[in-house]
Design a protein around this nucleic acid. Structure first.
Lengths: 206, 206
DNA sequence: TTCACTATTGGACGTGCGCGCAATAGAGTT
DNA sequence: AACTCTATTGCGCGCACGTCCAATAGTGAA
Protein backbone atom coordinates (compact mmCIF):
# COMPACT_ATOMS: atom_id res chain seq x y z
CA UNK A 1 0.00 0.00 0.00
CA UNK A 2 1.06 3.59 -0.44
CA UNK A 3 3.69 4.69 2.02
CA UNK A 4 2.50 7.40 4.42
CA UNK A 5 4.28 9.64 6.85
CA UNK A 6 3.98 8.33 10.39
CA UNK A 7 1.60 10.95 11.76
CA UNK A 8 -0.88 10.48 8.96
CA UNK A 9 -0.66 6.69 9.06
CA UNK A 10 -1.20 6.62 12.81
CA UNK A 11 -4.36 8.67 12.47
CA UNK A 12 -5.49 6.52 9.54
CA UNK A 13 -5.18 3.45 11.74
CA UNK A 14 -7.17 5.05 14.55
CA UNK A 15 -9.93 6.03 12.14
CA UNK A 16 -10.07 2.59 10.58
CA UNK A 17 -10.25 1.03 14.05
CA UNK A 18 -13.03 3.43 14.97
CA UNK A 19 -15.00 2.45 11.90
CA UNK A 20 -14.69 -1.24 12.70
CA UNK A 21 -15.48 -0.72 16.38
CA UNK A 22 -18.60 1.21 15.46
CA UNK A 23 -19.79 -1.85 13.57
CA UNK A 24 -18.57 -4.68 15.78
CA UNK A 25 -17.94 -3.18 19.19
CA UNK A 26 -14.69 -2.14 20.79
CA UNK A 27 -13.84 -5.47 22.38
CA UNK A 28 -14.64 -7.43 19.23
CA UNK A 29 -12.34 -5.36 17.02
CA UNK A 30 -9.32 -7.34 15.80
CA UNK A 31 -5.99 -6.46 14.23
CA UNK A 32 -6.99 -8.20 11.03
CA UNK A 33 -10.29 -6.27 10.89
CA UNK A 34 -8.51 -2.96 11.12
CA UNK A 35 -5.93 -3.96 8.49
CA UNK A 36 -8.64 -5.04 6.09
CA UNK A 37 -10.54 -1.80 6.69
CA UNK A 38 -7.40 0.15 5.71
CA UNK A 39 -6.47 -2.22 2.90
CA UNK A 40 -3.03 -2.92 4.36
CA UNK A 41 -1.26 -5.80 6.04
CA UNK A 42 -1.93 -6.52 9.70
CA UNK A 43 1.72 -6.25 10.71
CA UNK A 44 1.61 -2.54 10.03
CA UNK A 45 -0.57 -1.87 13.04
CA UNK A 46 2.04 -3.12 15.47
CA UNK A 47 4.57 -0.83 13.87
CA UNK A 48 2.55 2.07 15.32
CA UNK A 49 0.88 0.61 18.41
CA UNK A 50 2.59 -1.56 20.98
CA UNK A 51 -0.56 -3.59 21.53
CA UNK A 52 -4.13 -3.89 20.38
CA UNK A 53 -5.33 -2.72 23.81
CA UNK A 54 -3.38 0.48 23.37
CA UNK A 55 -4.99 1.14 19.99
CA UNK A 56 -8.48 0.53 21.34
CA UNK A 57 -7.83 2.83 24.29
CA UNK A 58 -6.78 5.59 21.90
CA UNK A 59 -9.90 5.04 19.81
CA UNK A 60 -12.22 5.35 22.80
CA UNK A 61 -10.38 8.38 24.15
CA UNK A 62 -10.55 10.12 20.80
CA UNK A 63 -14.22 9.41 20.20
CA UNK A 64 -15.22 10.58 23.66
CA UNK A 65 -12.96 13.62 23.63
CA UNK A 66 -14.28 14.75 20.25
CA UNK A 67 -17.83 14.55 21.51
CA UNK A 68 -17.06 16.48 24.68
CA UNK A 69 -15.20 19.20 22.81
CA UNK A 70 -17.99 19.60 20.29
CA UNK A 71 -20.51 20.07 23.07
CA UNK A 72 -18.27 22.62 24.79
CA UNK A 73 -18.06 24.60 21.57
CA UNK A 74 -21.80 24.64 21.07
CA UNK A 75 -22.23 25.86 24.65
CA UNK A 76 -19.70 28.63 24.13
CA UNK A 77 -21.87 30.10 21.40
CA UNK A 78 -24.57 30.91 23.95
CA UNK A 79 -24.35 33.66 26.54
CA UNK A 80 -26.91 32.91 29.23
CA UNK A 81 -26.88 29.80 31.38
CA UNK A 82 -30.25 28.85 29.95
CA UNK A 83 -28.85 29.19 26.44
CA UNK A 84 -25.78 27.15 27.33
CA UNK A 85 -27.89 24.44 28.89
CA UNK A 86 -30.13 24.42 25.82
CA UNK A 87 -27.01 24.00 23.69
CA UNK A 88 -25.85 21.11 25.85
CA UNK A 89 -29.27 19.58 25.51
CA UNK A 90 -29.36 20.05 21.74
CA UNK A 91 -25.94 18.45 21.40
CA UNK A 92 -27.16 15.48 23.43
CA UNK A 93 -30.32 15.11 21.36
CA UNK A 94 -28.45 15.02 18.04
CA UNK A 95 -29.05 11.61 16.38
CA UNK A 96 -25.45 11.64 15.15
CA UNK A 97 -24.48 10.89 18.74
CA UNK A 98 -25.94 7.39 18.67
CA UNK A 99 -22.71 5.90 17.37
CA UNK A 100 -20.71 7.63 20.08
CA UNK A 101 -23.14 6.48 22.70
CA UNK A 102 -22.59 2.86 21.70
CA UNK A 103 -18.94 3.40 22.61
CA UNK A 104 -20.07 4.58 26.02
CA UNK A 105 -22.18 1.46 26.50
CA UNK A 106 -19.16 -0.65 25.61
CA UNK A 107 -16.94 1.34 27.97
CA UNK A 108 -19.29 1.07 30.93
CA UNK A 109 -19.56 -2.65 30.38
CA UNK A 110 -15.78 -3.03 30.12
CA UNK A 111 -15.08 -0.73 33.06
CA UNK A 112 -15.87 -3.45 35.58
CA UNK A 113 -12.99 -5.59 34.35
CA UNK A 114 -10.49 -3.29 32.65
CA UNK A 115 -8.67 -0.75 34.79
CA UNK A 116 -7.53 1.50 31.96
CA UNK A 117 -10.99 1.73 30.45
CA UNK A 118 -12.56 2.37 33.84
CA UNK A 119 -10.26 5.29 34.62
CA UNK A 120 -10.73 6.91 31.24
CA UNK A 121 -14.47 6.42 31.36
CA UNK A 122 -14.69 7.72 34.89
CA UNK A 123 -12.63 10.84 34.17
CA UNK A 124 -14.66 11.68 31.10
CA UNK A 125 -17.94 11.19 32.93
CA UNK A 126 -16.74 13.56 35.61
CA UNK A 127 -15.90 16.11 32.95
CA UNK A 128 -19.42 15.88 31.56
CA UNK A 129 -20.87 16.33 35.01
CA UNK A 130 -18.58 19.31 35.64
CA UNK A 131 -19.78 20.92 32.45
CA UNK A 132 -23.31 20.72 33.82
CA UNK A 133 -22.30 21.80 37.32
CA UNK A 134 -20.68 24.96 36.01
CA UNK A 135 -23.63 26.05 33.97
CA UNK A 136 -26.07 25.26 36.76
CA UNK A 137 -24.00 27.21 39.29
CA UNK A 138 -23.89 30.11 36.89
CA UNK A 139 -27.62 29.95 36.31
CA UNK A 140 -28.29 30.06 40.02
CA UNK A 141 -26.11 33.15 40.31
CA UNK A 142 -27.98 34.99 37.58
CA UNK A 143 -31.28 33.89 39.08
CA UNK A 144 -32.36 31.99 35.97
CA UNK A 145 -32.44 28.69 37.86
CA UNK A 146 -33.83 27.85 41.29
CA UNK A 147 -31.34 27.66 44.14
CA UNK A 148 -30.87 23.90 43.79
CA UNK A 149 -28.22 21.50 45.09
CA UNK A 150 -25.73 21.88 42.22
CA UNK A 151 -23.96 18.55 42.51
CA UNK A 152 -27.17 16.57 42.91
CA UNK A 153 -28.94 18.30 40.05
CA UNK A 154 -26.01 17.93 37.67
CA UNK A 155 -25.67 14.20 38.37
CA UNK A 156 -29.42 13.76 38.04
CA UNK A 157 -29.50 15.50 34.68
CA UNK A 158 -26.49 13.55 33.38
CA UNK A 159 -27.95 10.26 34.61
CA UNK A 160 -31.36 10.97 33.16
CA UNK A 161 -29.85 11.73 29.77
CA UNK A 162 -27.62 8.64 29.91
CA UNK A 163 -30.52 6.44 30.93
CA UNK A 164 -32.77 7.69 28.15
CA UNK A 165 -30.03 7.48 25.51
CA UNK A 166 -29.41 3.95 26.61
CA UNK A 167 -32.97 2.97 25.77
CA UNK A 168 -32.96 4.79 22.46
CA UNK A 169 -29.63 3.34 21.33
CA UNK A 170 -29.74 -0.17 22.78
CA UNK A 171 -33.44 -0.80 22.14
CA UNK A 172 -34.47 1.12 19.04
CA UNK A 173 -38.21 1.71 18.76
CA UNK A 174 -38.93 1.25 22.45
CA UNK A 175 -38.90 4.99 22.99
CA UNK A 176 -39.21 7.31 20.03
CA UNK A 177 -36.36 9.75 19.93
CA UNK A 178 -38.65 12.78 20.03
CA UNK A 179 -40.42 11.52 23.13
CA UNK A 180 -37.15 10.85 24.92
CA UNK A 181 -36.04 14.40 24.16
CA UNK A 182 -39.34 15.87 25.31
CA UNK A 183 -39.34 13.88 28.54
CA UNK A 184 -35.73 14.72 29.28
CA UNK A 185 -36.34 18.42 28.72
CA UNK A 186 -39.41 18.44 30.97
CA UNK A 187 -37.55 16.68 33.74
CA UNK A 188 -34.55 18.96 33.69
CA UNK A 189 -36.66 22.10 33.38
CA UNK A 190 -38.70 21.05 36.38
CA UNK A 191 -35.61 20.20 38.40
CA UNK A 192 -34.13 23.66 37.76
CA UNK A 193 -37.37 25.62 38.06
CA UNK A 194 -37.36 26.63 34.42
CA UNK A 195 -40.56 27.31 32.54
CA UNK A 196 -41.84 24.60 30.24
CA UNK A 197 -40.05 24.72 26.89
CA UNK A 198 -37.20 26.87 28.12
CA UNK A 199 -34.67 24.23 27.19
CA UNK A 200 -35.90 23.51 23.69
CA UNK A 201 -36.93 26.98 22.54
CA UNK A 202 -33.63 28.74 23.17
CA UNK A 203 -32.06 26.72 20.39
CA UNK A 204 -28.65 27.67 19.10
CA UNK A 205 -28.10 26.61 15.49
CA UNK A 206 -25.57 23.77 15.29
CA UNK B 1 -17.62 -36.32 38.84
CA UNK B 2 -20.76 -37.44 40.61
CA UNK B 3 -23.54 -38.32 38.27
CA UNK B 4 -26.55 -35.99 38.60
CA UNK B 5 -30.04 -36.14 37.25
CA UNK B 6 -30.45 -33.92 34.21
CA UNK B 7 -32.58 -31.20 35.76
CA UNK B 8 -30.19 -30.68 38.64
CA UNK B 9 -27.12 -30.78 36.45
CA UNK B 10 -28.60 -28.25 34.04
CA UNK B 11 -29.25 -25.81 36.84
CA UNK B 12 -25.78 -26.48 38.27
CA UNK B 13 -24.28 -25.49 34.94
CA UNK B 14 -26.31 -22.29 34.77
CA UNK B 15 -25.24 -21.33 38.28
CA UNK B 16 -21.58 -22.04 37.57
CA UNK B 17 -21.81 -19.97 34.39
CA UNK B 18 -23.43 -17.16 36.34
CA UNK B 19 -20.62 -17.21 38.89
CA UNK B 20 -17.98 -17.00 36.17
CA UNK B 21 -19.86 -14.32 34.25
CA UNK B 22 -20.13 -12.23 37.39
CA UNK B 23 -16.34 -12.25 37.62
CA UNK B 24 -15.35 -12.03 33.96
CA UNK B 25 -18.35 -10.68 32.11
CA UNK B 26 -20.91 -12.52 30.03
CA UNK B 27 -19.12 -12.31 26.71
CA UNK B 28 -15.77 -13.40 28.23
CA UNK B 29 -17.19 -16.54 29.82
CA UNK B 30 -15.86 -19.73 28.18
CA UNK B 31 -16.87 -23.38 28.21
CA UNK B 32 -13.64 -24.29 29.98
CA UNK B 33 -14.21 -21.63 32.65
CA UNK B 34 -17.63 -23.02 33.47
CA UNK B 35 -16.37 -26.61 33.56
CA UNK B 36 -13.56 -25.68 35.91
CA UNK B 37 -15.99 -23.79 38.14
CA UNK B 38 -18.11 -26.94 38.41
CA UNK B 39 -15.11 -29.26 38.64
CA UNK B 40 -16.21 -31.31 35.64
CA UNK B 41 -15.07 -31.84 32.09
CA UNK B 42 -15.92 -29.26 29.45
CA UNK B 43 -17.68 -31.74 27.21
CA UNK B 44 -20.47 -32.04 29.73
CA UNK B 45 -21.73 -28.56 29.00
CA UNK B 46 -22.52 -29.38 25.39
CA UNK B 47 -24.47 -32.39 26.54
CA UNK B 48 -26.98 -29.93 28.05
CA UNK B 49 -26.70 -26.82 25.91
CA UNK B 50 -26.53 -26.80 22.13
CA UNK B 51 -24.16 -23.84 22.11
CA UNK B 52 -22.36 -21.50 24.44
CA UNK B 53 -24.55 -18.63 23.23
CA UNK B 54 -27.61 -20.51 24.37
CA UNK B 55 -26.16 -21.05 27.83
CA UNK B 56 -25.23 -17.39 28.20
CA UNK B 57 -28.70 -16.32 27.08
CA UNK B 58 -30.23 -18.53 29.76
CA UNK B 59 -27.90 -17.07 32.38
CA UNK B 60 -28.84 -13.49 31.55
CA UNK B 61 -32.53 -14.29 31.41
CA UNK B 62 -32.42 -16.01 34.77
CA UNK B 63 -30.45 -13.27 36.51
CA UNK B 64 -32.71 -10.53 35.20
CA UNK B 65 -35.92 -12.45 35.85
CA UNK B 66 -34.92 -13.21 39.42
CA UNK B 67 -34.26 -9.56 40.09
CA UNK B 68 -37.56 -8.47 38.59
CA UNK B 69 -39.55 -11.07 40.53
CA UNK B 70 -37.87 -10.13 43.80
CA UNK B 71 -38.80 -6.49 43.27
CA UNK B 72 -42.38 -7.42 42.45
CA UNK B 73 -42.61 -9.38 45.68
CA UNK B 74 -41.30 -6.53 47.78
CA UNK B 75 -43.83 -4.21 46.17
CA UNK B 76 -46.67 -6.62 46.88
CA UNK B 77 -45.97 -6.33 50.59
CA UNK B 78 -47.00 -2.68 50.49
CA UNK B 79 -50.57 -1.44 50.12
CA UNK B 80 -50.43 2.16 49.05
CA UNK B 81 -48.85 3.35 45.81
CA UNK B 82 -46.37 5.39 47.84
CA UNK B 83 -45.44 2.29 49.81
CA UNK B 84 -45.08 0.22 46.66
CA UNK B 85 -42.91 2.86 45.07
CA UNK B 86 -40.79 3.03 48.21
CA UNK B 87 -40.40 -0.75 48.03
CA UNK B 88 -39.33 -0.49 44.40
CA UNK B 89 -36.87 2.18 45.38
CA UNK B 90 -35.50 0.17 48.31
CA UNK B 91 -35.01 -2.86 46.06
CA UNK B 92 -33.13 -0.70 43.60
CA UNK B 93 -30.91 0.79 46.28
CA UNK B 94 -29.85 -2.59 47.68
CA UNK B 95 -26.07 -2.99 47.23
CA UNK B 96 -26.60 -6.67 46.43
CA UNK B 97 -27.92 -5.50 43.09
CA UNK B 98 -24.54 -4.31 41.89
CA UNK B 99 -23.67 -7.72 40.47
CA UNK B 100 -26.95 -7.90 38.63
CA UNK B 101 -26.47 -4.42 37.30
CA UNK B 102 -23.15 -5.41 35.75
CA UNK B 103 -25.12 -7.96 33.72
CA UNK B 104 -27.34 -5.13 32.51
CA UNK B 105 -24.32 -3.10 31.45
CA UNK B 106 -23.05 -6.10 29.51
CA UNK B 107 -26.46 -6.66 27.95
CA UNK B 108 -26.91 -3.05 26.82
CA UNK B 109 -23.47 -3.12 25.27
CA UNK B 110 -24.17 -6.40 23.49
CA UNK B 111 -27.66 -5.38 22.40
CA UNK B 112 -26.33 -3.34 19.50
CA UNK B 113 -24.82 -6.41 17.86
CA UNK B 114 -26.70 -9.44 19.16
CA UNK B 115 -30.37 -9.79 18.23
CA UNK B 116 -31.27 -12.33 20.91
CA UNK B 117 -29.73 -10.26 23.69
CA UNK B 118 -31.36 -7.09 22.40
CA UNK B 119 -34.83 -8.58 22.39
CA UNK B 120 -34.50 -10.07 25.85
CA UNK B 121 -33.02 -6.87 27.23
CA UNK B 122 -35.68 -4.75 25.60
CA UNK B 123 -38.56 -6.89 26.86
CA UNK B 124 -37.25 -6.89 30.41
CA UNK B 125 -36.70 -3.14 30.37
CA UNK B 126 -40.26 -2.67 29.25
CA UNK B 127 -41.43 -4.86 32.12
CA UNK B 128 -39.53 -2.68 34.59
CA UNK B 129 -41.08 0.42 33.12
CA UNK B 130 -44.54 -1.15 33.25
CA UNK B 131 -44.05 -1.91 36.92
CA UNK B 132 -43.45 1.79 37.47
CA UNK B 133 -46.28 2.87 35.18
CA UNK B 134 -48.81 0.79 37.07
CA UNK B 135 -47.88 2.12 40.47
CA UNK B 136 -47.78 5.69 39.22
CA UNK B 137 -51.18 5.34 37.56
CA UNK B 138 -52.56 3.90 40.78
CA UNK B 139 -51.03 6.70 42.83
CA UNK B 140 -52.64 9.32 40.62
CA UNK B 141 -56.01 7.64 41.10
CA UNK B 142 -55.69 7.67 44.88
CA UNK B 143 -54.49 11.26 44.76
CA UNK B 144 -51.13 10.47 46.37
CA UNK B 145 -49.25 11.60 43.29
CA UNK B 146 -49.71 14.63 41.08
CA UNK B 147 -51.62 14.13 37.85
CA UNK B 148 -48.45 13.58 35.79
CA UNK B 149 -47.83 12.09 32.35
CA UNK B 150 -47.57 8.43 33.40
CA UNK B 151 -45.47 7.12 30.55
CA UNK B 152 -43.05 10.04 30.67
CA UNK B 153 -42.62 9.93 34.43
CA UNK B 154 -42.09 6.18 34.52
CA UNK B 155 -39.41 6.30 31.83
CA UNK B 156 -37.75 9.25 33.53
CA UNK B 157 -37.63 7.45 36.87
CA UNK B 158 -36.31 4.24 35.31
CA UNK B 159 -33.70 6.15 33.31
CA UNK B 160 -32.60 8.20 36.29
CA UNK B 161 -32.12 5.06 38.36
CA UNK B 162 -30.28 3.29 35.53
CA UNK B 163 -28.04 6.29 34.97
CA UNK B 164 -27.13 6.63 38.62
CA UNK B 165 -26.55 2.88 39.08
CA UNK B 166 -24.30 3.00 36.08
CA UNK B 167 -22.02 5.50 37.76
CA UNK B 168 -22.00 3.66 41.07
CA UNK B 169 -21.28 0.27 39.51
CA UNK B 170 -18.99 1.19 36.63
CA UNK B 171 -17.06 3.93 38.43
CA UNK B 172 -16.91 3.06 42.12
CA UNK B 173 -16.17 6.03 44.37
CA UNK B 174 -17.27 8.68 41.88
CA UNK B 175 -20.66 8.93 43.56
CA UNK B 176 -21.13 7.53 47.03
CA UNK B 177 -23.97 5.08 47.12
CA UNK B 178 -25.87 7.03 49.78
CA UNK B 179 -25.70 10.22 47.76
CA UNK B 180 -26.95 8.49 44.63
CA UNK B 181 -29.90 7.13 46.60
CA UNK B 182 -30.66 10.50 48.12
CA UNK B 183 -30.49 12.29 44.80
CA UNK B 184 -32.62 9.68 43.07
CA UNK B 185 -35.27 9.86 45.78
CA UNK B 186 -35.39 13.66 45.65
CA UNK B 187 -35.77 13.64 41.90
CA UNK B 188 -38.56 11.10 41.80
CA UNK B 189 -40.40 12.67 44.73
CA UNK B 190 -40.29 16.04 43.02
CA UNK B 191 -41.45 14.58 39.71
CA UNK B 192 -44.48 12.98 41.38
CA UNK B 193 -45.29 15.81 43.73
CA UNK B 194 -44.46 13.79 46.83
CA UNK B 195 -43.19 15.42 49.99
CA UNK B 196 -39.49 15.26 50.68
CA UNK B 197 -38.55 11.92 52.22
CA UNK B 198 -41.80 10.18 51.26
CA UNK B 199 -39.89 7.58 49.27
CA UNK B 200 -37.32 6.68 51.88
CA UNK B 201 -39.37 6.89 55.06
CA UNK B 202 -42.14 4.47 54.11
CA UNK B 203 -39.63 1.64 54.18
CA UNK B 204 -40.86 -1.93 54.01
CA UNK B 205 -38.49 -4.40 55.65
CA UNK B 206 -36.74 -6.53 53.03
C1' DT C 1 22.55 7.38 -9.24
C1' DT C 2 23.50 5.45 -4.94
C1' DC C 3 22.55 4.74 -0.33
C1' DA C 4 20.44 4.71 4.18
C1' DC C 5 16.28 4.72 6.46
C1' DT C 6 12.00 2.95 7.54
C1' DA C 7 7.17 2.07 6.07
C1' DT C 8 5.10 -1.99 4.77
C1' DT C 9 4.56 -6.88 3.82
C1' DG C 10 3.07 -11.57 4.77
C1' DG C 11 3.39 -15.42 7.11
C1' DA C 12 4.84 -18.19 11.40
C1' DC C 13 4.11 -19.03 16.30
C1' DG C 14 1.76 -20.12 20.44
C1' DT C 15 -2.62 -19.73 22.72
C1' DG C 16 -7.39 -20.21 23.61
C1' DC C 17 -11.75 -20.73 21.69
C1' DG C 18 -16.42 -23.57 20.54
C1' DC C 19 -17.59 -27.84 19.31
C1' DG C 20 -17.84 -32.93 18.38
C1' DC C 21 -17.03 -37.72 19.37
C1' DA C 22 -15.52 -42.24 20.82
C1' DA C 23 -14.63 -44.23 25.21
C1' DT C 24 -15.85 -44.85 30.07
C1' DA C 25 -18.45 -45.49 34.20
C1' DG C 26 -22.29 -45.28 37.39
C1' DA C 27 -27.18 -46.10 38.45
C1' DG C 28 -31.62 -48.42 37.77
C1' DT C 29 -34.06 -52.49 35.92
C1' DT C 30 -34.74 -57.24 35.21
C1' DA D 1 -25.44 -60.81 38.46
C1' DA D 2 -26.15 -59.25 33.88
C1' DC D 3 -27.70 -55.63 31.13
C1' DT D 4 -29.17 -51.12 29.43
C1' DC D 5 -29.13 -46.39 29.40
C1' DT D 6 -26.91 -42.18 29.56
C1' DA D 7 -24.15 -38.91 32.39
C1' DT D 8 -19.54 -37.87 32.09
C1' DT D 9 -14.83 -37.94 30.39
C1' DG D 10 -10.87 -36.25 27.86
C1' DC D 11 -8.92 -35.27 23.89
C1' DG D 12 -8.67 -33.71 19.04
C1' DC D 13 -10.23 -30.69 15.30
C1' DG D 14 -10.34 -26.33 12.87
C1' DC D 15 -10.28 -21.61 13.50
C1' DA D 16 -9.26 -16.85 14.99
C1' DC D 17 -6.73 -14.26 17.93
C1' DG D 18 -2.39 -11.02 19.32
C1' DT D 19 2.23 -10.78 18.55
C1' DC D 20 6.58 -11.06 16.31
C1' DC D 21 10.12 -10.83 12.69
C1' DA D 22 12.84 -11.35 8.55
C1' DA D 23 12.19 -9.78 3.93
C1' DT D 24 10.78 -6.15 0.70
C1' DA D 25 10.09 -1.73 -1.32
C1' DG D 26 9.42 3.28 -1.44
C1' DT D 27 11.43 7.84 -0.35
C1' DG D 28 14.49 11.53 0.64
C1' DA D 29 19.37 12.79 1.26
C1' DA D 30 24.07 12.61 -0.41
Amino acid sequence: MTRMNPGVRRQTIVEAAQAVATRKGLSATTVRDVAEEMGTSSGLIHHYFASMDELLAVVFAQVAQTDLSATRERMDLADSPTGKLAAYFAAWADPDNDETFQFWLDAWSEAGRNDAVRERSRDLNIEWQSLLSEVIRHGIETGEFDDVDVEATAWRALSLLDGLSLQVVAHPAVIEREKAAKWAASGIEKDLGLSHGALTEAIIPA
